[in-house]
Nucleic acid binder design. Structure first.
Lengths: 365, 365
DNA sequence: TTGAAAGCGCTAACAT
DNA sequence: ATGTTAGCGCTTTCAA
C-alpha cells in the first residue's frame, strides 16, 4: 500500500549512464540508437521497474490512449454488449476504456463530455439524451462516435431494430394475428420513433391493425401496465419496446393466468441476457450489440490513428494479429451499407437485426 | 470532429489581464485572491470554455482522480453489480472509473496492474487470479482494494457466500433432503474452496450427505453435465457454484423432463439478473454485490483522500449529500464484523449474504 | 494580493 | 549516435 516513488526516465538514464533523451529514444525507437546502448537502457529500465508516466506523455503528445464509453445507464443489460464490444476492440489496440454513466440525464451527459475532453482521446456516445445540435457541438471538441443516433458529420453505428420489428410484425401476420399492440418506449427515444414509423406502413401492407400503447418506461415494472393495456385493446399479440418491458409483460400475464402464446403472443427487442431463460422463452429481435460496440470502437480508432505518427509504444498491448487486420480495415469502409442515405455525407453504419422466434409467439388462438 | 485547440490557463490569464499563477489561484482557491480579480478570471474562463488539463494536473500532483476496476471477465453478470457499485461511489466523489478486463488470465492481470500504475490513483481488484504474494507486491506500487480475497495488509471486501451456502443447506435439510450435491466451481476459485470448507461441517451437523461434483466452469453450458451428475449421484437437491451454472442445470433438467423441484431441487448463488425470471424461479444466495462495490470504493477513497489536501476542484462532482455521510462513515469501520480474524491486522469487511427461496426448491419428493 | 519562476516526466528539435 | 535544451499546462514556492 505504501506506494513507493516511481523511478523516472532520469533514473533509468542515470543508471545506464546516458542522457535522458537517449534513454527515451532507446525505449521508444530502439532503431535510432546504438544497439548495446539500447540494451543497457532497457536493462536498467527493467532493473528499476521503470514505467513511463502516462500523464507526462499525454501532456506532451496530447494523446491519452484512453477512450470513454458514455452511457445513460450502466445498469441496463442492453448496454452490456456495448461495454464488451468497445472494450474488446479498445484493449486490442492498447487503449484504456473508461466508463461514464450519465444517469439518464442530458445535463449530466453534457457535463461528462465536457470533463472528458482532454482526459480521453475520444468517446463512444450511446443512446444519447442530447439534441442533435448539442452532440454536434460536443463533437467539435472531442472525437465522437454515436451509437443509435444519426448526427450529420459524426460517424455512427445504428442498430436497425426498426427492421427487426417489421420482421416481428410479419411473423405475427403469418401466424394469423390481425390486431397487434406495440408497447412503445420513452418519448425521448429516437429508436422508438423510428420503429413506429416503420411499423405503421408495414402494418398497413400486411393488413394488420396496429395499436400503439404507452409510452412506457423501458423497465420490467412497466410491463404490467402494458400487458393490461394490450389485453384491454383486444390485441392477440404485443410487441414491446424492449426485452425488459416484455419480461414485465410476461410476468403480469403469468400472474393474471393469461396463457402465452395461446391468448396473447409476446415479442421483445434486444435479446438481452435472460430472454431465452424465461418461460415461455421470449421471441425477440436480436441486435448485434457487441458488434456495434466493436464497430463504434473501430470507427473511433480509425479517426484517432489517422492523425498520428505511425509506430507504437513498445509497452502498448500487442497490435491486432495480422489476420485480424483485414477486419479492422472494414471499419472506415462506410460505403458497403448504402442504407438510410441521410441528409449528410458520412452515413452511419447500419447493422441489421433479426427476429429470434421462441415460444412466446404462436398462432392466433 | 475537428477538435480545435483548447484554451489553456495562459489564455485565460491573458484574457483576464492577470498572471497565470493568479488565474490558477482564482480557479482553485478563490479565497486567496481579490474578489473581483477572481470574478474576472472566472468570467474569462467561462467565456473561453476553459477546461483544466487533467494530464498537466496529474503530472504535477501525481493524482489522476481516476480509479480502475479490474475484473477477470466483464461478461459475467456477477460483476455487473460491482461495476455499478464502485462506479456510483467513484462518480459521487468526482473520480473517473476505468474498466480493465483481464480475460481470466493471471498474466494479463499482472500486466494490467503494471500499466495502471501511474495512470490511476488506485484500483479495485475483484476475483483476482493472482497469488497472494503477487497481489501483495502489486499493492506496494498501487493503492489496492481486493474483493473476495484476503490479502494480509491489503484492505478488502468479502462476500460471505459460504455462509449463504450453509443457509441453503439448512433450507434443504429442513425440507427433508438427505443427499445433496454441490456442483463446484473452478479449482482456482478462492470462494469455492471456502464454500466447500463451510459446507462439509454443516452437512455433518445437519445429517446430510454432501456429494461434491465438478469442478465445473461457472457458465450456463456447464450446467448440463452438473445436472446429469447430480441425478446420477442420487441427490435430491443440487447447490450450484453460481447462478449461471444453476441456469444450465435447470435447462438440462427441463430438457430431460425431470420435474423441479419435485425430483430435484436446485439452488444457485449470487442472485444475478434473471434468477427470478427463469421457471421455476431460482432459489439462490443473494449477495450484496453492489454494496460490496460501494464499500470497496469507499475503502479505496478513504486511503486516497487520506493523504491529500482538503479542498476540492470546483469542477469536481458534487460531494455526497450530508445525509449520506453517515453511510460513508461506515466504510473504514472494520471492527464491527469480527469474522475470519486472519493472519494479519486489518481484517476485510465481510458482507453477509442470505438465501432467497423461490420455487426451484421444495420438499424432497 | 499578485507576479515571476521553477519544475512535474517526458519528447523533439537542435547541436555536437 | 548521443547530449543539450526547450517546453507541454499546471501548481506552487518565493518575492515583490
Amino acid at each position: 500500500m505504501a506506494v513507493r516513488r516511481q523511478p523516472t526516465l532520469r533514473d533509468v538514464a542515470a543508471a545506464a549512464g546516458v542522457a535522458v533523451s537517449t534513454a527515451s529514444r532507446a525505449l521508444t525507437r530502439p532503431g535510432r540508437v546504438n544497439a548495446d546502448t539500447a540494451d543497457r537502457v532497457v536493462a536498467a529500465a527493467k532493473e528499476l521497474g521503470y514505467i513511463p508516466s502516462a500523464s507526462a506523455r499525454a501532456l506532451l503528445s496530447g494523446r491519452t490512449a484512453t477512450v470513454a464509453l458514455v452511457l445513460p445507464d450502466v445498469t441496463n443489460p442492453f448496454f452490456f454488449g456495448l461495454v464488451r464490444g468497445t472494450g474488446a476492440r479498445l484493449r486490442e489496440s492498447g487503449y484504456v476504456q473508461v466508463l461514464a454513466d450519465t444517469e439518464e440525464s442530458a445535463e449530466v451527459e453534457l457535463d461528462t463530455l465536457r470533463k472528458l475532453r482532454g482526459q480521453v482521446d475520444g468517446a463512444v456516445l450511446a443512446a444519447s439524451r442530447l439534441s442533435d445540435e448539442q452532440i454536434a457541438a460536443a463533437a467539435a471538441d472531442l472525437a465522437l462516435v454515436v451509437v443509435n443516433r444519426t448526427i450529420p458529420g459524426t460517424p455512427g453505428v445504428l442498430l436497425d431494430t426498426a427492421g427487426g420489428m417489421v420482421q416481428a410484425l410479419e411473423h405475427l401476420a403469418s401466424l394469423g394475428h390481425r390486431r397487434v399492440a406495440y408497447a412503445s418506449g420513452p418519448v425521448t427515444s429516437w429508436s422508438d420513433r423510428r420503429r413506429r414509423e416503420a411499423l405503421e406502413p408495414a402494418a398497413a401492407r400486411l393488413g394488420v391493425e396496429l395499436v400503439v400503447l404507452g409510452p412506457y418506461a423501458p423497465v420490467r415494472q412497466a410491463g404490467a401496465a402494458a400487458a393490461d393495456a394490450a389485453l384491454d385493446a383486444g390485441a392477440t399479440a404485443v410487441v414491446a419496446f424492449n426485452d425488459l418491458l416484455a419480461f414485465g409483460v410476461l410476468e403480469r400475464l403469468d400472474a393474471r393466468e393469461v396463457p402465452v402464446p395461446e391468448r396473447l403472443s409476446v415479442i421483445g427487442c434486444d435479446d438481452i441476457f435472460g430472454a431465452d431463460l424465461v418461460r415461455p422463452a421470449l421471441t425477440t429481435v436480436e441486435s448485434p450489440v457487441e458488434e456495434a460496440g466493436r464497430m463504434a470502437a473501430d470507427l473511433l480508432l480509425a479517426r484517432l490513428e489517422g492523425n498520428r505518427p505511425a509506430d507504437d509504444d513498445p509497452d502498448a498491448a500487442p497490435a491486432a494479429d495480422p489476420d485480424e487486420a483485414s477486419d479492422l480495415d472494414r471499419a472506415p469502409d462506410l460505403d458497403d451499407e448504402p442504407v438510410t442515405r441521410g441528409r449528410d455525407a458520412a452515413d452511419p453504419v447500419l447493422l441489421p437485426t433479426h427476429l429470434v422466434v421462441r415460444s412466446s409467439t404462436g398462432p392466433v388462438g
